Simulated scan of single mutants.
Amino acid sequence: MHDAANLETNMLGPVLADRSCGDCTACCTVLQVASPDFAKPAGVPCAHLTANGCGIHAVRPHICRTWFCVWRRQADLPDAARPDRSGLLVSMNFVPKPQNCFEGVSINVRLLAGSDAIENGMAARVLDVLCEYLIPVWFSDGDKKMLMHPTPDIARPVLSGAPAPAELQDEVAAWREQYGMFVPGR
């Protein structure tokens, strides 16, 4: 986990001092946790979650002390993008055996149950901010997971290894250089 936390800091920056979880407990229910000191399945509230938040906050597991959603790290995301306010949980994903190079290390924007973030435009605002970086961005609405960044005209040649059109060669080369290590079979 230490390496993942360092990677998150290198890619997204440090946790912002002026942002706190407050009443938000979305991660305590939505995310799967599989660490040496604590485990819970995705979509199931943590056994320690109470109506007032974490019932063991002072002695919570290491994973809970060191994991932060992307909203806590990205000043460009508006305050309204906090998961409990926006209906979107944004996190870094680390997939040990990715199906493609865009899954190894990526940002996942999850639409929470009952969220109106698509209709009210918050999902678009969040995606606009996150798609400015050389980091793959996936959007999940609970039924399907869609690659939002890079765009298909960049993703296709990166995934296939085919030559990129002249006007896209530099961008395709940047993605290949950054994420080529996650190509399955390497």
Rank of each mutant, 00 (worst) to 15 (best):
V59S: 14
V70K: 09
R82F: 02
A26N: 08
G22I: 00
P36A: 04
G87S: 09
P78G: 04
R85N: 08
P98E: 00
I107F: 12
D23L: 12
H62W: 05
P98K: 09
P61T: 03
N93V: 15
G22D: 03
L77A: 11
D18C: 01
P61D: 03
C27H: 06
G53N: 03
I56G: 05
A81G: 07
S106G: 12
G22Y: 06
V33K: 01
T25M: 13
S106V: 14
N108L: 15
C21N: 00
L31R: 03
A42R: 12
L49T: 13
A17W: 08
A26S: 11
H62T: 15
F38G: 05
N100F: 14
P36R: 01
I56Y: 02
R65K: 15
Q32D: 04
T29I: 05
P98N: 07
A26G: 04
C21E: 05
G43R: 10
H57G: 02
S86A: 15
G104N: 12
A58D: 10
C64Q: 07
D76L: 15
A51H: 03
Q99A: 15
C69E: 11
N108W: 11
C64N: 08
P78S: 01
D79H: 05
R65S: 05
K97F: 11
R73Q: 04
S20C: 02
K97H: 12
T29Q: 05
L88R: 14
A51S: 08
P45G: 05
R65V: 03
E103A: 14
F68V: 02
P78T: 00
R85W: 03
I56M: 09
P83V: 01
T25I: 11
D18T: 06
V15Q: 04
T25E: 01
S106P: 11
T29D: 09
C101D: 07
L89I: 15
G87A: 12
T29R: 01
G104M: 10
G22M: 06
G104I: 01
T50M: 00
R19A: 07
